[in-house]
Design a protein around this nucleic acid. Structure first.
Lengths: 192, 192
DNA sequence: ATATGCCAACCTATAAGTAGGTAGGTACTG
DNA sequence: CAGTACCTACCTACTTATAGGTTGGCATAT
């Protein structure tokens, strides 16, 4: 039985992905969950606090992924493809057609400071994870980089987010795949 | 003597780039220009109309650039570098640290239909221009593509916008350059 | 009794927009 | 030349709707 706070986080995430920080209100959540705004304030006294909670939830998931990379049985290339595949499915199925942090980053100068801090932390967490995946891939011989793993991780994130934007603008999920493939093709070591 | 409507477009553009469609109001413009909101409505009766006008102004500039590519003296590589250089300067100087269409595209599902249509048109216009530049570069022997010029133009746009997002998230203009360089390095034909 | 989670009622601020008016400038007409 | 009409661009005052949030209360579960 999922509790109200969790549902609020989930719905808030969808609404943010759809229209950004200022594009949704407690009234939207109220309509979606069938509870009054005052009840939402009970769980999340401020909008900024709610959005921080949404971003922090996403960051927790990334940090869990970081933990998985530490597992010595993990295969870097598979993890990278899994991440890409996750977004491909989300974009095709329109379940999560855009990364929360990306849509918030686009309006970063206008965000409440605590939200901006959390969004930046999300970028740092994600790049930390990817840096480790890429480094592992290099040591496993499946990945070849032209720059440091840190720089390449940031490049990859930018590519993924740009690809999401393209998929959204052209209303074509294949744009996402094509654009991300140009990155993966560049770094992949072919075995023959 | 720049007229009021032009100033409104210019300020609206800055405000949109800062915080998106819902992140600014007529009151912000009123404060910036020192005129009352009702006066702004005189020039632009609706917010959607104002934002469409801002986007259409940007599209006009792109179409002017398309005209320049038709000039047989133009050098594709120089045009590409000029476009990149333009954004590098804007991001470093914080004069226009993000592309209008990109920040609007991030919240596309929530935009009024006429605005969404205009934003999509902006993507089409920009990719049309870039497609021509890339095709010209190929025929001039300075550019080598791995896919069709149309696909590569879209990839480039995604890269540029993703790079802007990265520069904004990391608050580091060099992120933009590094990420875009990975694209230009891939397509550039070296002469030696 | 306490904690949790919901509610009604309410508040202030602000958003997009409307209606009627004024002032200055320009063009036209007698 | 003066008067008139029209245009442009601003204004005051106002409207409705909605946003984020506050306060006190009720119901249920432990």
């Amino acid at each position: 039985m999922v509790d109200t706070a969790a549902k609020l986080l989930s719905e808030a995430r969808e609404l943010i992905v759809q229209g950004g920080y200022n594009g949704f209100s407690y009234a939207d959540l109220s309509a979606r969950l069938g509870i009054r705004k005052a009840s939402i304030h009970h769980h999340f006294p401020s909008k900024a606090g709610l959005v921080v909670a949404v971003v922090e939830q996403a960051r927790s998931a990334i940090r869990a992924q970081i933990g998985l990379v530490q597992n010595e049985n993990s295969i870097a290339w598979d993890q990278l493809l899994a991440y890409i595949g996750y977004w491909e499915r989300c974009i095709k199925e329109q379940t999560a057609p855009f990364c929360l942090a990306a849509v918030l980053a686009a309006e970063l100068p206008n965000l409440p400071e605590e939200v901006a801090t959390s969004v930046r932390g999300h970028f740092v967490d994600l790049s930390t994870w990817l840096e480790r995946v890429l480094s592992l891939g290099v040591s496993q011989g499946s990945i070849r980089l032209q720059d440091t793993p840190a720089i390449e991780a940031q490049t990859f994130i930018a590519t993924v987010y740009g690809a999401m934007l393209a998929a959204r603008a052209w209303d074509d999920p294949d744009r996402f795949t094509a654009i991300v493939d140009s990155f993966t093709n560049r770094i992949r070591v072919r075995r023959q």
